[in-house]
């Protein structure tokens, strides 16, 4: 396995993607110590300040002191720099949790559907139905029904991803179970559950990891879209989508309010996508038709 790992680590896309993600994670974790203020705090005196200006700033402790606003303030007088840094927490958290949940549930369903024909017929019809509702619409509808909190947003984004993972795993199982080494395992008396765990799963890991990164990227984007449309997390919670939703109002006079979170968001999703592409190229050269898993 070690030559595999070495090949992965030598890949430029993997290196770039993982470096950016590590830096972002560190920023998200250390946000309180990176010169930020409370991201929900508003100083009504300093509304709509331009990036880079130094102003007299009244902080959450009601002390007024000079402060350089790296990214300016929004129309409520909140410090955008602080909001962008704290926003990384929500995006990364949503991305990781959604991909882990969708992958776990999808893998379980996919293994069952791929190996048991009866489960397959029922489960896949349901998945077909679920997949016929465009992901963003389904997420929007679920948030509308469940109400917007971090948990409901994660659930609402994860549900539309599950059928995609299920389909992938199912198709992997169906092709792997035709391999002669599976028949060899059957003929030496290996029980079904062992075949699934010992032979099918290890041979499906690479495409599943790759799929996991794409789920993660899509989850981060959908969370941002929900917030941007004003349907996601409550607006006082700093998320990149929320910052941009507020930036819409003042876009013609202060377009940079849109660009700062936009750059962070794009860079994050780009890093995840590059990581996925790099993993795919190095681990699983055959699996390169993104989106074509039908």
């Amino acid at each position: 396995m070690s030559p595999n790992v070495r090949r992965v680590l030598k890949n430029g896309a993997v290196r770039f993607g993982s470096t950016v993600l590590i830096v972002l994670t560190v920023i998200a974790l250390l946000a309180p110590w990176l010169g930020t203020t409370d991201p929900a705090w508003l100083d009504a005196v300093n509304m709509n300040q331009k990036p880079g200006v130094t102003v007299d700033w009244t902080g959450p402790d009601n002390q007024t002191a000079p402060r350089t606003l790296l990214m300016g303030t929004d129309s409520f007088g909140r410090d955008i720099y602080s909001r962008v840094l704290y926003g990384a927490r929500v995006s990364l958290l949503v991305g990781v949790i959604v991909s882990v949940v969708a992958l776990a549930i999808g893998t379980l369903f996919g293994l069952l559907a791929g190996y048991f024909r009866r489960v397959d017929a029922v489960l896949m019809r349901f998945m077909d139905g679920l997949m016929s509702i465009p992901a963003i619409l389904l997420a929007i509808a679920l948030v509308a029904a469940l109400g917007a909190s971090l948990t409901t947003v994660i659930v609402a984004i994860a549900i539309p991803e599950i059928p995609r993972v299920t389909r992938l795993v199912r198709s992997l199982v169906l092709s792997i179970r035709e391999e002669p080494y599976i028949e060899a395992a059957i003929s030496v008396g290996t029980p079904v559950w062992k075949i699934l765990l010992r032979h099918v799963l290890p041979n499906s890991i690479a495409p599943m990891v790759v799929q996991g990164t794409y789920v993660c990227a899509s989850a981060i984007l959908i969370e941002a879209i929900l917030s941007f449309l004003g349907l996601g997390l409550p607006s006082e919670i700093p998320t990149w989508g929320n910052i941009m939703a507020e930036a819409r109002v003042v876009f013609s006079s202060a377009p940079y309010n849109m660009w700062f979170p936009g750059i962070f968001l794009t860079l994050t999703v780009l890093a995840v996508n590059l990581l996925g592409d790099g993993l795919r190229d190095t681990l699983d050269p055959k699996f390169n038709k993104r989106g074509a898993q039908r």
């Binding site: 990227a217 984007l221 941002a224 879209i225 941007f228 941009m244 849109m258 936009g262 968001l265 794009t266 999703v269 780009l270 996508n273």
Partner: peptide, 9 residues
């Protein structure tokens, strides 16, 4: 890049 930039941006 196209996959990574949100459509509203």
């Amino acid at each position: 890049l196209g996959f990574s930039i949100p459509v509203f941006v």
